[in-house]
Amino acid sequence: MTEENGAPGVDGQEPSRRDFIYIAAGGAAAVGGGLVAWPFIDQMNPAADTLALGSIRVDVSPVLQGSEITVMWRGAPVFIRHRTEEEIAAARAVELSALPDEDARNDNLPAGTPGFDANRVLRPEYLIVKGNCTHLGCVPLGLNANTGDYDGWYCPCHGSHYDTSARIRRGPAPENLPVPDYFFETETVVKLGLSPEEASAAGWTVSENDGAVA
């Protein structure tokens, strides 16, 4: 700021009083700028109608034992398989150390929970996992096409094999197929998008406990 052309002389003005008002005004400008910025940033967050479809209800009663369906949720596929006794037994017979990924990858449980089959389901007969291969995102094939070498899912893009608990067993995929937030609203209706804790907190009646096993 040049002192010329009749600018207020420094002598005769108390600098502290002069500076105070400039700092106050400048500070108010900065605060205002920050407050104004928030709505313009927040508007890019998902809108109310997008959030409304963040959780969906699926009636699993038409899924007969030994078959599976794929539903679209949040723009991506979710596999729901009604497992047979053999599939459940095969999943539970696997040693943790045999798994390339030992984490349960279950959004309803804390990270690091061991990948036992019991930690991957709320009810053993219904396996519900997100349907994008953890390698590069292709949708693996399942009961309707090719279950791969471990009777679960097979990803044709680069040859990843998942077992009957949708855990990676062989191939380039680094992680088990993740288990999304869900809970059973009734015996046959699953709500995708809320974990049992979130559901209870929101006032839902949760039909099942979380079934965690250490």
Partner: peptide, 22 residues
């Protein structure tokens, strides 16, 4: 309310800046 306070501060700054200038 915010703009009103800001307006007052800016007005005072304006008077300050122009205080000794014809």
């Amino acid at each position: 309310i915010y703009l009103f306070i800001f307006a007052i501060l800016t007005y005072l700054a304006y008077r300050q800046v122009w205080a000794n200038v014809k």
